[in-house]
Write a protein that binds this DNA or RNA. Structure first.
Lengths: 198, 198
DNA sequence: GCCCGCCTGGCAGTCACTGCCAATCGGACA
DNA sequence: TGTCCGATTGGCAGTGACTGCCAGGCGGGC
């Protein structure tokens, strides 16, 4: 364990450094010229890496921005499943998102990334696509929770609850972004859900 | 008006014929080989048209499948706004979707298209993107309706209601597709919404 | 000092999509 | 009827994202 913890970490460390370098270069260029106007060739050049290698770190141009979402899906699933059995699906999912927001480093960077995603159609499409995977990931936990409360649950009912929570997160996030991040995201989410369930 | 009604209709008729021809050719090839494996060049060749002209009819490959969604958005908006003032947002939106489903010709073709979209990631992403425009289109009507019931409404609340309805439509549609279209889509939608609001 | 993996870069190719230009087609009008 | 004109078409060359392939380099283990 001691060797496997240091040796791969050397590779991983350099790998993380390259990833971060590409990411920062790309975000700077996106901010300067816009996402569509920035080419992969330009990012690679300014990051001092070959185009071919860039694609080995980020499978697609969109993944440079949306890439982190992958791991966050796992985090969300784990957080939801870790909630006490007594919690309703709504409470469990809310707690899951809370955990997700805690995991983020600087709120400024989160706002920057989220704004870019919501302002760029192709990025938003990709983001929505990834969120579909999140929905699939938390579905079993939600199904179980609903079944505990009211007996056997049809597929649609659980899927609808999950989809609704994500829809409210989306509405809240959009309002948050449009307001320049000045309001509280969690409060917006609560307001959104209250409008639906109240 | 008389001339403008017959003359463009000749052009439009031939245009519609070409569109239909491309669409049918493409759907056949998609069914035979899958969406990704079918190239624009192949569709153009088999439809007896140049690649360049194909792109004049359908701006993107995805639009061959998702293209109709554009006009349906208008239909939905009109139907929602045409609902009586006494109807709640939920009732108005439900009626809107009912109108939309009535507008579709054969249910078999609807099922075929929808299945293709839900089974193909890039198509589903594009579809979701277009649905976002629908959401923006019906948002004013829903905001007005909510304001009538409870006074001034914040942006988030109305957006959340709209997003939730679309999320339930999505969940219902997915269940409908996964079940091979054997269940009733409207019933699935009602079940989905009941799970959320009940 | 040598060998062996892995990483990297470059190259050529595919595919969706776009701008440009010339040919053509069909109706309008003299 | 013949001619003109606007719209449609097709081909061509180019861009940009992305992929497979192959050769070279850099590390660490023997």
């Amino acid at each position: 364990m001691g060797t496997t913890a240091t040796q791969p970490s050397l590779w991983d460390r350099s790998r993380q450094a390259v990833v971060a370098s590409i990411f920062e270069t790309a975000m700077r260029l996106f901010a300067e010229q816009g996402y569509e106007a920035t080419t992969i060739a330009q990012i690679a050049k300014e990051a001092g890496i070959s185009q071919r290698s860039l694609f080995r770190y980020f499978g697609t141009k969109e993944d440079i921005v949306c890439g982190e979402q992958e791991e966050h899906g796992e985090l969300l699933r784990a957080a939801v499943e870790a909630q006490p059995a007594a919690a309703t699906p709504w409470e469990a999912l809310r707690a899951g998102f809370e955990a997700l927001m805690d995991a983020h480093g600087s709120p400024e960077q989160l706002l920057e990334i989220t704004t870019l995603i919501f302002d760029t159609p192709s990025l938003r499409a990709r983001y929505t696509q990834k969120r579909l995977r999140w929905q699939e990931a938390v579905l079993p936990a939600v199904t179980d929770r609903m079944a505990a409360g009211e007996g056997p649950v049809s597929e649609v009912r659980a899927a609808a609850v999950v989809a609704t929570v994500f829809a409210c997160v989306d509405a809240a996030t959009e309002a948050w972004v449009r307001g320049g991040g000045r309001s509280d995201l969690a409060a917006l989410y609560d307001e959104a859900l209250a409008a639906v369930r109240g």
